[in-house]
Simulated scan of single mutants.
Amino acid sequence: MDLAELSAAPGFPGSEAPREEAWGLVAGTPRHADGPTVILQGHVDVVPAGDLGQWAGDPFVPRVDGDLVHARGAADMKAGVAANLAVLAAIQASGVRPRGRVSGHFVVSEEDGGLGAFGTLRRGHTGDACIITEPTASTLVTATAGALTFRIEVPGRSAHASVRDSGASAIDAYQPIHAALALLEARRNLDPDPLMAEYPVPYALSVGTLRAGEWASSVPDLLVADGRLGVRLDEDPAAARDELEQCVAAACAEHPWLRHHPARVSWPGGQFASGRLPAGHRLGELVAAAHAEVTGGPRPVEHGAPYGSDLRLYAGAGVPTLHYGPGDVRLAHGPRECVSLAETVQVTRTLALAVLRAAGTD
């Protein structure tokens, strides 16, 4: 992928991980007749392991314990990627001839914005429906919230710590802003969409990093807070950004130091809009019916997810999209990340049935 061209393109979703190159893979079955293209999509990037002392072993060496595979990325989402590859291999080995095309999209950079999906779609690799095998614990996720990375730079005035009253601590100045952000989060989570109502905080606002000061005996003259603002379903990301900026400005206006030295808000990194499968689209019915048939149980629960994903990029390109995959997202990004082998096989069988029915067969 041409990183310079993509970063300058309209709608660039942002990125946070430094990279000098990016690669994607698109492959699929031959088209034998005039049928639809059904996409199986998965991202191959993972987040850092974090504190290695909290892991039972090397996070990048898979450890099998009974039915579970433990490793960073096992659930998010190497199991989903493996399922997609297995479906494509099974279709090829079976000799079944889909009338349309079953296509696999394997992308990078989902965790920090969606550069891989963005570039894949810009190359013209689209379709009539898409299943992203994110970890959904075999449920149907038909809508995802958005997430916008923000940065707040709070100025101070340096001074020797022994005469701190002659300076202005950026740490002290940040505190009323942090309190205002908590109130903003509470307001933004009133009356959520029914698909998100199961979550205590469906649209979380979280500050992830704070950096301030350069010397213990100096009053800090700058604090930088990086965080994540949840975007409500169907909300314009520009409106969400404006609401946070107004919140920070209002907090500054009430503070004696910040009133004359206001904090600065910027939006680096990933910018995830929300997205959803169109109401009543047959893709949800096909996957639900295939799941019930494969498992011999009830149809999977349908709900939304409180995180951003590549779903919104495919939906924005006019490709109806949902999530259905193995693994529990509550274990993702943590030291207990694992996935069930039996569930992965079950999801793979469901996907094979669903995509063949969606693409049609001779």
Rank of each mutant, 00 (worst) to 15 (best):
D67L: 06
E198R: 13
D128N: 03
L6N: 01
L85N: 07
V201F: 07
E214K: 08
T321V: 09
G208N: 08
E20R: 14
I132H: 02
P194N: 12
P326S: 02
R357I: 00
V102C: 14
R312N: 12
R97Q: 12
R187M: 03
P202C: 10
G316N: 10
A204D: 06
A279H: 14
G327E: 04
V26N: 01
L140N: 06
D172Y: 00
L190G: 00
L25D: 08
D242Q: 15
I39A: 06
V102F: 14
C130D: 04
D193H: 15
A93S: 13
V355H: 04
S138I: 00
L115P: 04
E243Y: 11
P320T: 07
G269Y: 07
S103L: 15
C247E: 09
L6Q: 02
Q246E: 15
E302M: 08
T133S: 01
W55F: 02
A182F: 05
V301S: 05
G308A: 05
P48F: 04
P192T: 07
T149E: 15
D165I: 10
R164G: 02
Q41D: 07
A197N: 10
K78R: 14
E16K: 10
A212N: 05
A180I: 05
D310P: 01
G208P: 07
S162T: 10
G296V: 11
H70M: 07
Q346S: 13
R123T: 03
V46A: 12
E153T: 13
P278S: 03
E214Y: 08
V345C: 01
L121C: 03
A74E: 11
G227P: 07
P30F: 09
L286D: 12
A159N: 13
P10F: 06
A179C: 00
Y314T: 05
G296S: 01
G227W: 06
A288K: 03
G35L: 12
R101I: 05
V96R: 13
T149R: 14
N189A: 02
A168T: 01
D234K: 14
L286I: 04
H125F: 13
A354V: 01
A79R: 02
A82L: 11
P326M: 00
D191N: 11
G280K: 09
F118N: 10
A317D: 09
E134D: 07
R299L: 11
G167S: 08
D2W: 11
Y324T: 01
R63E: 15
S158F: 01
